[in-house]
């Protein structure tokens, strides 16, 4: 399904910042990672490990200080519609209705009128929001807002889907449903997904591979292949293999959480 044999090539990314009240901090230290086209890749780690920073660098939202990130479109230097993003807090345009939000990116692509309407409706339907086209985001639950945000991003048909803890603000049941639906959509579209989370079970459930990241300075400590996402078995969460994997990954993360805590995060 992928448009080329190119996923995301991250090479030697080092990124630091100076917080308003403190000494310069290295958020990412010489991170290299190769993500295959069509891969569902999770960035997993404690808060402050730089996983969101890495995602934002792939998105082109922050200036790369050192190293390179390459996609099918070449070197990343600024945001572009080939890399769609979904944030934890949805970042919908609150003054636009659901369908106006979804149409925004389409109009930027030059798709207007009834074709934009049709495509927007298609993606709203895909995330099960039909009937809420004319609702404003503030009139929707958190889960529905995130559905709208996902529809808005999918509508521009990006090669790469960047997701920053997209289900972190949702309640447990909604989160589970959204995870399953995301997998269904991913299987149907074959997009490359980079998914940031601190939830081990979520990463194991969703990802082909998991980058387990270390606490500050952020590094990729281990690469784990999970691949439970290829199964459409709804009871996969209960399987011993799944739980063993969660346990195993959790052991890797635990050290990092302890370290992060020792550093005061």
């Amino acid at each position: 399904m992928s448009k080329s044999g190119f996923g995301i090539e991250i090479e030697g990314i080092t990124h630091g910042y100076v917080p308003r009240s403190g000494k310069p901090t290295v958020a990412l230290d010489n991170v290299s990672l190769s993500i295959a086209p069509g891969e569902f890749h999770a960035l997993l780690g404690p808060s402050g490990c730089g996983k969101s920073t890495l995602l934002f660098l792939i998105g082109g939202f922050q200036k790369i200080q050192q190293g390179t990130i390459r996609t099918a479109r070449g070197l990343v230097s600024e945001p572009g519609p080939d890399r769609g993003i979904v944030f934890q807090n949805f970042a919908l345009f609150p003054w636009k209705t659901v369908i106006e939000n979804v149409r925004y990116g389409l109009e930027k692509k030059g798709i207007k009128g009834s074709e934009a309407e049709q495509r927007a409706k298609h993606y709203i339907d895909l995330v099960h929001l039909s009937g809420f086209e004319k609702a404003f985001p503030t009139q929707l639950s958190g889960g529905m807002q995130q559905r709208a945000a996902i529809a808005r991003t999918l509508a521009i048909d990006p090669d790469i889907l960047l997701m920053d803890e997209p289900f972190g603000a949702l309640d447990a049941q909604t989160r589970r449903i959204m995870q399953e639906e995301l997998l269904t959509i991913w299987r149907g579209t074959g997009k490359t997904v980079v998914f940031v989370t601190h939830d081990v079970a979520e990463a194991v459930f969703l990802a082909d591979r998991i980058s387990v990241m270390s606490a500050r300075p952020g590094r990729i400590k281990r690469l784990v292949s999970a691949e439970f996402n290829r199964s459409a078995d709804p009871t996969i969460h209960k399987s011993p293999a799944f739980n063993d994997m969660v346990e195993q990954v959790w052991e890797m993360v635990r050290d990092e959480v302890d370290q992060a805590r020792a550093q005061g995060h």
Binding site: G60, P79, G84, F87, A91, L92, W95, K108, T153, L162
Partner: peptide, 29 residues
């Protein structure tokens, strides 16, 4: 204005100028 709104718009294909006009001003309204 939430910086993420501008980032969203940029990744949806908006130029910097469009972000100011179509996102930041309405958000600041």
């Amino acid at each position: 204005v939430d910086v993420l709104l501008g980032w969203s718009a940029r990744s949806l294909g908006a130029t910097r100028f469009q972000v100011v006009r179509e996102v930041m001003f309405p958000a600041a309204l």
